[in-house]
């Protein structure tokens, strides 16, 4: 029980003092959980970041759930997640109570015209940070151009098309490409000698061809 409360308390602190969301959270979690509490090792931390990034949902929540689960199974996950969510829930709920009073105030509106300019910049910056981390290959940049153009067309012509589908299509195309490559390599394996190296080259070419077909 003591350990559960400690999990709750540590993640409550993280939720309360981390501004700017997920990626800011990673550094703080590392400091608290790896350096101070020594609940997990540095290597495990790297693993956890990889998991948090490749599963859906807010990164902070993913990490809290995972670390909690590692320490104390289901209850640990529950306490850690509750801890990280609770400060947001309370603070934002309180703000929402007073928000309507503020929002009709002219100075408030002026201030938020400035904030909106800033938010536009921040969103683009977040997107560009992701682009920088992308593989420097043709295909990801091709997807980038296609999806941004699509979104602009959707907006201009008022077409509603859920982005969820775009995300799922994007992921599925890669999986499909891998399946096709695997199939191709299996055929090749029946002919000896042409293995690894050939497979690599075919892999790349085949990927590109596939995408063009998909379009």
């Amino acid at each position: 029980m003591k350990e559960l409360l400690e999990l709750f308390y540590v993640f409550l602190k993280l939720g309360l003092f981390t501004f700017g969301g997920g990626y800011a959270m990673i550094a703080n979690i590392e400091d608290q959980v790896v350096n101070r509490k020594k609940w997990i090792t540095q290597d495990e931390m790297v693993e956890i970041i990889a998991i948090a990034e490749s599963t859906p949902g807010p990164i902070a929540i993913n990490m809290a759930t995972y670390i909690g689960f590692k320490r104390k199974k289901f209850l640990g996950a529950l306490f850690a997640t509750l801890g990280v969510v609770l400060p947001s829930l309370i603070i934002i709920y309180l703000i929402s109570l007073f928000y309507d009073n503020f929002s009709s105030n002219q100075y408030f509106q002026w201030a938020f015209i400035g904030v909106k300019a800033c938010v536009g910049f921040l969103i683009i910056k977040a997107g560009i940070n992701l682009v920088i981390k992308m593989d420097k290959k043709f295909y990801p940049f091709f997807v980038l151009v296609v999806v941004i153009s699509l979104m602009i067309v959707f907006e201009l012509f008022n077409i509603s098309f859920s982005s969820v589908y775009l995300i799922l299509i994007g992921g599925s195309i890669e999986v499909l490409a891998l399946l096709v490559v695997n199939l191709y390599n299996k055929k090749k394996e029946s002919e000896p000698k042409l293995k690894e190296e050939e497979g690599q080259i075919i892999d790349n070419n085949d990927n590109k061809d596939k995408k063009e077909d998909q379009k």
């Binding site: 536009g120 969103i123 560009i128 995300i167």
Partner: peptide, 24 residues
């Protein structure tokens, strides 16, 4: 799973950039 994530990344980046462009 890895491959799926690889495909998702550029889409997510594009969606974020588009929403930023729209706001601007």
């Amino acid at each position: 799973v890895k491959q799926f994530m690889k495909g998702v990344k550029p889409v997510v980046a594009s969606l974020i950039i588009s929403s930023g462009l729209l706001l601007i």
